[in-house]
Design a protein around this nucleic acid. Structure first.
Lengths: 243, 243
DNA sequence: ATTCGTTTCAAACGAACGTTCGTATGATAT
DNA sequence: ATATCATACGAACGTTCGTTTGAAACGAAT
């Protein structure tokens, strides 16, 4: 029977149409990654089914298992595709600033710029992914969480060293707390930049990335430079007791 | 047949044991809320099944539907139980500080203390919930997200006003951005206080709530007070261009 | 002792999930 | 021409999900 050949001929027509509309089908892996990134960010990871992803990517249901092994493999691929280039950018920025200043101490603002600018830049270039990244920071699945933050270990230590050199009088514990707060400010910008309009009653938007980077640097640099509280810390006006 | 009565007699024994172990069964709603709060925080909302909750709470599967209408009803109940008292605490703290100072301007640190202290206090008292709350801030489900942040609208506006009065020279847009960063620092502390040890290599822990509150206030007060960047903003040393 | 509204129970429902299966296609190497 | 290979496909698998059901058992009032 020639039914197969007829079907094949039909498929070739459909295939040609798809090729026209959605690009070379060889790039179906990329299409799945793009769609998954968007749907994961918009609706959450667990609440996004493989069926929804493959349907939106014009792919077969089994394509995810075939190309990525499993849904979790797809999640990891979505993350790895963007996180590593981002961190390379951070480190090379810091490298170039350090090369510029030579042996002199690097200004705090330059360090923060190298740390913030690439990710804020990505907030406009890949807003879906940065929202997803912000949620991955507090991902409950421990394996996924570890897989995510392990990408940042090297970057974190490098910038911690640079900050410690720029703030030689700040004890390590104090520095770590302030870096923790700084990370919170940055991550919250990743995750909730789409909520800024509501939050501010329409005043704030993340359209000018340079403006946001500048404000983030200003806020965090001042926080990092804040004088240490008096050692006896008994001033009831500065730190009123709870209740 | 007396099978029912025998079973009932057996149940009474089991019931007595359960009563001993887990308290008055009349409080099964509370038990479900407690367990749900913990499991939602530990494993995520979508990934926590009603079956897992009721099993851990020694309740029947149908108890959630009966007492809370649905799983979503349970989620909302878990949130409302803790969020509202927390915000009441914040407002009454601010009230008391304002009453103390009379007509004089309230110190920035007092405002921040009224805002931070109750939630950081809850991080030790209800760590599971605060972790859950941190994730609810970036909850993808829009309805749930709205339901959550609507609890904070009144508090936000009240503190925004207080901060604006304490920082009369700060433009509104600048204040909103800095509040955004401040919120990020606080929420990140809610969500990731359990990761502090890894993050800091064992240096940081959230055991002394007063210490953390003080550090958070110091960092954010300095950030809020940071001088505005020069209007022409052309200093390449302070804000190096991206790339 | 009986009734009544409330609460708990075991059981089952349909729907949706991630994964796997066997097959078939088109390109490539033989 | 033929065999091989990665890719893609539809269909089905078994599991788990949230919810519903109707009966049973409760405490309290009658």
């Amino acid at each position: 029977m020639n039914r197969g050949r007829v079907l094949h001929a039909e498929w070739r027509v459909v295939h040609a149409m798809k090729t026209e509309l959605s690009g070379d089908p060889i790039r179906i892996k990329e299409r799945i990654l793009d769609v998954a990134e968007r749907l994961f960010a918009e609706n959450g990871i667990k609440e996004t089914s493989v069926r929804a992803i493959t349907a939106a990517a014009d792919a077969n249901l089994a394509a995810v298992s075939y190309h990525f092994g499993s849904k979790e493999g797809l999640i990891r691929a979505v993350i790895a595709r963007r996180v590593d280039p981002l961190n390379v950018e951070r480190l090379s920025l810091l490298d170039s600033y350090e090369a510029e200043t030579g042996d002199a101490a690097l200004p705090l603002e330059s360090i923060l710029h190298a740390f913030f600018a690439p990710s804020i830049h990505h907030c406009l270039q890949h807003p879906h992914f940065m929202r997803l990244a912000g949620r991955m920071v507090s991902e409950p699945d421990k394996e996924l969480h570890r897989a995510f933050i392990s990408h940042f270990e090297k970057v974190f230590l490098r910038f911690k060293g640079a900050l410690a050199r720029a703030l030689p009088n700040l004890p390590e514990k104090e520095l770590l707390w302030r870096m923790h707060f700084l990370l919170g400010a940055m991550i919250h910008t990743w995750t909730n930049h789409s909520d800024l309009e509501w939050f501010s009653g329409g005043v704030l938007t993340l359209t000018d990335e340079l403006e946001v980077i500048e404000k983030l640097i200003t806020f965090c640099a001042a926080g990092l430079r804040a004088p240490l509280p008096a050692q006896p810390r008994g001033d009831p006006n500065n730190t009123p007791p709870h209740r």
